[in-house]
Structures are given as structure tokens and as C-alpha cells.
Design a protein around this nucleic acid. Structure first.
Lengths: 186, 186
DNA sequence: GTATAATTTGAGTCAACACTCAAGTTCTAG
DNA sequence: CTAGAACTTGAGTGTTGACTCAAATTATAC
């Protein structure tokens, strides 16, 4: 797993896996389907990955990482920035957004690894949103800030969930509306 | 499929199917698992159902029906009633709520039947919420009412989605917060 | 240029899946 | 009581899944 050819093959396999999870769901993502799409045979897949699970986990990691833009600047974004970044993520990286939502549900069932990863990421996201709210409204209590952040993040996931089912759904409009609402009456 | 024994077996199979989809997801819901849990052998399952798919569809129908409380009184609920009924549904009929969220995603992928059913149900739910909003705020434009209803319904699904992952998540608090927010600034 | 390690091949293994069926058992109407 | 229909049994079918492996091929370092 060191030569150029191997790394390229690895890439093609991950691309195929990502596309398949997004379009067919976890069930449709078989080794055969991945290999067909990547132009590779099973033996080659297993030369590069220990298991199907490992390839899927790599894609999950991609999806989770892709949601958090600019993690270096942690702490300086406004709430509006965070929402806009999320809208951009859902629209521009549709496949990864689908993977994220799909795995959050199907994957977290009996897979502690995926479940833990998803939950931890959720906590981090809520904390970041809470920090942004707090910066914007320093007078708000911590509990209230936390609650508003959590409501907002889960509501955003709902928007993404609906987008997965209906490609015509206007993510931007509804996500921004949530932003407005989330700070209403303060 | 007419004797008492048959009807009872049918019931036990549907119960087992529902519990399995809720706890294990669609993948874990195998004929063997269903039969084990229902105390039945495969032959008996296939005496009562044409396919695994048919049993699952029956459970989906149950889940969708269970969300809409009191469909007779369509048109007279307040928005608060609708939210409260939904909170009650998610908490008291956790299994069906899990089935609903899970199927909305995994199931709708390559199953037009489930997808159509879910989408139609969503439309109906948005319409009902929109009617309630409109009753409460007759001055609001139709477009605005519709948009707020849609944001609210998708956000509520997000709350349910999170509840599926985290049983400690306080559905009531966040759902009611959404209600407050949804009508903020009017 | 050659040795060595990485990669690819593709036939093959084994388990689990949805589903079938002929034979037995139980129910219930008349 | 009886006849026929409904129900149950459980071994069996064919398919597809993830994964393996020895042999052939290709890339890279020296």
C-alpha cells in the first residue's frame, strides 16, 4: 500500500464507495458494486482495505470532516457564517451530506464506532454554534444558549434529511429561516 | 388467513417486525430474526405474507398512521395541539417513531412505494400545520405560512432523528422551542 | 538489470439470505 | 363427526453476500 498505483486505486475505491452510499444506501453498497464502479477486482480491494467496513468508515470520516469548514478558525465565526457554510456543504457536497445523514441513522444502529463518531461530532457542532450565539448575545444564559444551539443543529439535520428525500427542497431558504427563528425574541 | 390462530400469528409477526426495524434497522430485520422473535417458522410466515417486503410495508403503514392523531378532526387543531400530539407520538410510540425516521431514509432509497408514501404523508402534514398557522395568523401570506409550516415539519423530523440516536434527548423541550420560534416575529 | 516488495487477478469458500413445498396438524362450519 | 380449509412444520433450493489465496504482473530502489 505504498506505490503510486495502490494509492490511486485506493482513491477510486473510496470515490466509488461514497457515490454508492449516497445513491443506493448502505445495503446497495456491496463489494461487487464498489469494485465494478472502481474498475477493480475483489482481491485488489482486499489488498488495500481490511474489510468493507473499513472503506465505509473512511467515507464516514470524510463526510464528518467536510461539514466543519475551516476548523482552524474555531471560535471566530458568526452564527450566520456557520449556517452558510452548512448550506454550502449540503448543496456542493451532496454525496457527503447524504452519507452523513444516512450513516447517522442506518450506521449508528449496531456500529458503536460510527455511533460514537457521529455523537462526538454532534457535540462539537453544538458547542461551536453555542459559542457563536454567545458571542452574539453575551447576555444570554449558558443553558439557554446551549439549548438554542442544540435545537438549531438538530433542526438543520432535519432540513438535510428532507433534502436527501427531495432534491428540489430549498435547503438555503429553510436553513436561513431557522437561523432567524433561533435568535428570535432575544 | 381467516382462522383465529392465523390472525394472532399475523399480529405476532408484525409486532416482531416493528420491534426489529426499530432496534436493529432494516438490515437486521431478516426472516429468521422475525420468525425467532415471533415464535414461528418461515413456512408459517409465508403462509401469511407474500414476502418480507409486504410485512415491512404493513409496519410502515402503521408508523405513518400513528403520527396523525385524530385524523377525523382534521382542520380544528391548534399548532400547539399538533406539536403536543407529535411529542406524545415520539415518546409513547418510540418504536414506530424509529421506524418512521429509519424508513424515510433507508427505505425511500430504492423503494418507490415507501418513498411515495412518505412524501405524500409529509405533504399532508405540512398542509395541516400550515392550516393551523393560518388560523392563528390570518394576516400571514400563504407563501409565508407554507414556508413556516415546512420549516417546522422538517425541523421536527430533525428532532426525531436525533432522538433515534440519543434516547436521552429531550424531544418535548426542543419541539416546543421550535413552535415558539416558528411563530417568532409575527 | 535485477531483486524485492506492492499490486492485480479471478476462481473459489463459506455463511446467510429470501423463499418453497410436501407432509403433517389443527381448526371450524355444517 | 366429519370433511375440507387453514395453519404449521422444517428440511431444502438457489442466490448473493463478504472475504481468501496462490499465482501472475508490475513498479521501484539500488
Amino acid at each position: 500500500m505504498r506505490y503510486k498505483a495502490g494509492l490511486e486505486t485506493r482513491d477510486r475505491i473510496l470515490q466509488a464507495t461514497r457515490a454508492l452510499i449516497a445513491s443506493e444506501g448502505l445495503d446497495g453498497t456491496t463489494i461487487k458494486a464498489i469494485c465494478d464502479q472502481a474498475g477493480v477486482l475483489p482481491g485488489s480491494f482486499y489488498n488495500l482495505f481490511d474489510s468493507k467496513e473499513q472503506a465505509i468508515l473512511s467515507v464516514v470520516r470524510q463526510a464528518i470532516d467536510a461539514i466543519d469548514p475551516d476548523p482552524e478558525h474555531k471560535g471566530i465565526d458568526t452564527l450566520s457564517d456557520l449556517i452558510d457554510a452548512y448550506i454550502r456543504f449540503v448543496i456542493e457536497q451532496e454525496d457527503l451530506a447524504r452519507v452523513y445523514i444516512r450513516l447517522a441513522i442506518s450506521g449508528s444502529v449496531n456500529n458503536p464506532e460510527i455511533k460514537g463518531r457521529t455523537m462526538r461530532h454532534h457535540q462539537g457542532r453544538v458547542a461551536r454554534f453555542a459559542a457563536a450565539i454567545s458571542r452574539q448575545h453575551p447576555e444570554m444564559s449558558d443553558a439557554e444558549t446551549e439549548r438554542r444551539a442544540e435545537t438549531l443543529v438538530t433542526a438543520l439535520n432535519g432540513v438535510t434529511l428532507h433534502r436527501v428525500m427531495d432534491p428540489d427542497f430549498d435547503v438555503a431558504v429553510h436553513a436561513r429561516a431557522l437561523l432567524t427563528d433561533a435568535l428570535a425574541g432575544v
